[in-house]
């Protein structure tokens, strides 16, 4: 009987079952790697986009240092000024004003006069009231610059949503005369450009913008609520007063609030008669209060 048993190799045979399990593991690993790569790329792109915007802002500041190229400025220059300001935050505008003042120019970039800190000399600091008034050639320019600065968005440009760059309007005196006539057409143009972006996103194409493509989709899906109906609103009589902490009203140190005035009481509460507190001695009153609390 023993002779009929065929010789069998003692080496482990490559089993057919183990192969798919390894490949499953590998597949899972590859999947995970791919997902991790995607996340890493997404964040790297985000940082890149932010750096790009910061560089743009810096070059814009450098360009605006030389503004205006001639006086009086043309309407084209005014519109470039507005365009260059679009990615700015108010703090960037402040550094532009600072740089222009150092360079001996009025802080408002459409004015080429010297700031009062230069023209008035050392007197400017005490003769001019108001923050930053010496950085401009006149109060008129200060007012105009504030008018522009107020319209800048506090949100950094790389965090803004697509097409959310603020629509900066120059002060009336600096507005090019053509703007009034064509304001309607401009509005129409804005309307059409917005529509283009919407259409592009509908087609699944990327609309241009500072933000990189998101990992999350921006479509909002309403969540179906399956929870039971919310309980009946508590009647106003049972509602706790405004100063309660989870139904408990802390005891006040002042003598106005007496323990009897508390509207809610806990079952575990043992009513302890408050000791007579001499009003004048503050230390004694705190001590009594602590004793009162520790008993409870």
């Amino acid at each position: 009987m023993a002779g009929t048993i065929s010789a069998k190799g003692i080496l482990k045979q490559p089993s057919t079952q183990s192969t798919p399990s390894i490949s499953d593991e590998q597949k899972a690993k590859a999947d995970r790697d791919r997902r991790n790569l995607g996340i890493a790329l997404f964040h790297a792109n985000k940082i890149r986009a932010q750096k790009d915007v910061e560089a743009t802002i810096l070059t814009n500041i450098e360009t605006l240092l030389e503004y205006p190229p001639q006086t009086p400025f043309t309407s084209a220059q005014a519109s470039t000024f507005v365009q260059l300001l679009a990615p700015f935050q108010p703090s960037d505008f402040d550094s532009l004003v600072e740089e222009r003042t150092l360079d001996g120019k009025c802080g408002y970039a459409l004015c080429s006069n010297a700031p009062r800190s230069k023209s008035m000399g050392s007197n400017a600091a005490w003769r001019l009231k108001g923050h930053g008034a010496q950085d401009y050639c006149s109060n008129e320019c200060l007012r105009k610059a504030l008018h522009v600065k107020m319209q800048l968005s506090e949100v950094p440009a790389w965090d803004r949503e697509l097409g959310r760059d603020p629509d900066i309007v120059l002060p009336e005196t600096d507005r090019p005369p053509t703007t009034h006539a064509t304001s309607e057409s401009r509005q129409r143009w804005h309307q059409s450009s917005v529509n283009d972006d919407e259409l592009a996103s509908e087609r699944g194409e990327k609309a241009r913008g500072f933000r990189p493509t998101q990992v999350m989709a921006d479509t909002i899906v309403e969540k179906k609520t399956t929870s039971p109906k919310p309980s009946e609103p508590i009647s106003p009589a049972l509602a706790t007063p405004h100063d309660s902490i989870e139904g408990y009203i802390p005891v006040q140190a002042t003598k106005k609030v007496q323990p009897t005035e508390r509207r809610t009481t806990f079952a575990s509460d043992v009513v302890v008669p408050r000791p007579n507190i001499p009003e004048t001695d503050e230390e004694a009153s705190w001590k009594a209060l602590f004793e009162n609390m520790s008993i409870r």
Binding site: E54, L58, E62, L96, E98, E99
Partner: peptide, 8 residues
């Protein structure tokens, strides 16, 4: 130096 000077 100003902050934007350091940034460049």
């Amino acid at each position: 130096p100003t902050s934007s000077a350091l940034k460049i």
